[in-house]
C-alpha cells in the first residue's frame, strides 16, 4: 500500500467514525437548544439502545423488528428522562442540578445494563454488510460497513437540518430555545417541544449506537459513556448549539484521531486529539462555528 493510499484510508476511516461523533453532537445540540441542558445521559442511551437491539437479536427477533423496538424503548426513556429529571429543575434556571440528574440517569442505565447483560464485552453482529465486505474507490479499499455509517449519519443530519430550518416545528423548536415564555404566548406548547426534543435526541443516540456498535465489534455497558465524551468534544469543538459545528467538529475529531493512530500510535489517538482540541479552543473559545446571536443595540 502506498503512503498516499494509507493516508487516504486513514482519512476515510476518520470521516466514518467522525460522522458518528457528529450524530452524537447533534443529539447534544437538540436538547441544548430547547432547555440549555447538556444531557450527560446521552452516552448510556447510545449503549442501552444497542444492548437492547442485541438482546432482541439474540432472542431470535429479526433486525427489522429489533431495531424499531430498540428505538421505541429508547425514545420512551428520553421522554421519562425529560419528565422526571429535567423538567422539575427547569423551574430554577440557575440550578446546576441537571448535571447531576442527567449524569445520574446515565450511570443508572449503565448499572442496569451491567445487571441485565453482565459487565463483559458482547459481540455485536455486523449490520447489513459483513465485516469483510469492501468497496473499491480510486483503488482504495473501503469497508462497506464504514461507508454505510458515513452515508447514514450524513443523511440523518441532512434530514434534521431540513426539519429544523425548513419546517414550522423546527422553527418552533428554535423559538422555545430562544424564549420559552414568549413562545408560550405565541401559542407554542413550550413544554411539549422540550419533551419532544429529548425524545428526538434519544432516537439519535439510538441510531448512533446501532451504527457504531458493528464497527467496534463488541459492546460493553461503558461503551456509551466513552463514545459520548468524544461526541461532546466534537460538539464543543464545532461550537455547541451549531449544526454545522456538530458536523465539522465530529468529522475533524474523527480524522485527527485516525491520523494520529496511523502515524503515531493508536494508544495516542485520544490524547493527541484532546491536545489539538485544547489548542483550537484556546484560539476559538466558542468553538469553530460557535453561535453568536446578532442583535442591534
Amino acid at each position: 500500500m502506498s503512503s498516499l493510499e494509507f493516508a487516504l484510508e486513514l482519512i476515510f476511516t476518520g470521516l466514518c467514525v467522525g460522522a458518528v461523533y457528529s450524530l452524537i453532537a447533534h443529539g447534544f445540540n437538540i436538547t441544548f437548544w430547547t432547555t440549555k441542558v447538556v444531557n450527560f445521559g446521552h452516552g448510556p442511551f447510545i449503549m442501552f439502545c444497542s444492548m437492547l437491539v442485541l438482546s432482541f437479536l439474540l432472542n431470535g427477533l429479526p433486525w427489522i423488528v429489533s431495531i424499531p423496538l430498540g428505538f421505541f424503548i429508547i425514545i420512551l426513556l428520553g421522554f421519562i428522562l425529560e419528565r422526571f429529571s429535567i423538567r422539575p429543575l427547569l423551574k430554577y434556571p440557575t440550578s446546576m442540578g441537571w448535571i447531576v440528574s442527567t449524569l445520574g440517569v446515565g450511570l443508572f442505565l449503565q448499572a442496569l445494563a451491567s445487571k441485565i447483560w453482565g459487565a463483559q464485552a458482547l459481540a455485536f453482529p455486523p449490520f447489513i454488510f459483513k465485516a469483510t465486505d469492501y468497496v473499491s474507490i480510486f483503488g482504495i479499499q473501503l469497508s462497506a460497513q464504514y461507508l454505510l455509517v458515513l452515508v447514514m449519519a450524513l443523511v440523518i443530519m441532512l434530514i434534521m437540518e431540513v426539519i429544523i430550518n425548513k419546517t414550522i416545528w423546527g422553527k418552533a423548536m428554535k423559538a422555545v430555545a430562544h424564549d420559552p415564555n414568549f413562545a408560550r404566548v405565541m401559542g407554542i406548547k413550550s413544554k411539549m417541544v422540550m419533551t419532544l426534543s429529548f425524545m428526538i435526541s434519544a432516537l439519535l443516540a439510538g441510531v448512533a449506537g446501532i451504527l457504531i456498535a458493528p464497527i467496534y465489534g463488541t459492546i460493553t455497558p461503558e461503551f456509551g459513556m466513552n463514545i459520548m465524551v468524544l461526541g461532546f468534544v466534537a460538539s464543543v469543538l464545532g461550537g455547541i448549539g451549531s449544526s454545522k459545528g456538530a458536523l465539522f467538529g465530529g468529522l475533524m475529531l474523527g480524522v485527527i484521531e485516525k491520523l494520529v493512530g496511523g502515524y503515531i500510535s493508536t494508544s495516542a489517538e485520544h490524547g493527541v486529539a484532546f491536545l489539538i482540541l485544547i489548542i483550537i479552543l484556546a484560539l476559538k473559545p466558542d468553538g469553530i462555528f460557535g453561535v453568536k446571536v446578532v442583535q442591534k443595540v
Partner: peptide, 23 residues
Amino acid sequence: MEGRRLFKDQSVHDNLLLGFYFR
C-alpha cells in the same frame, strides 16, 4: 410582552409565521 420580546435569531418572516401558525 414588555422589552420587545421577539425570536431575534430568526427572520422577520419566520417570526410572523410563528406568530400565526400555532394560534
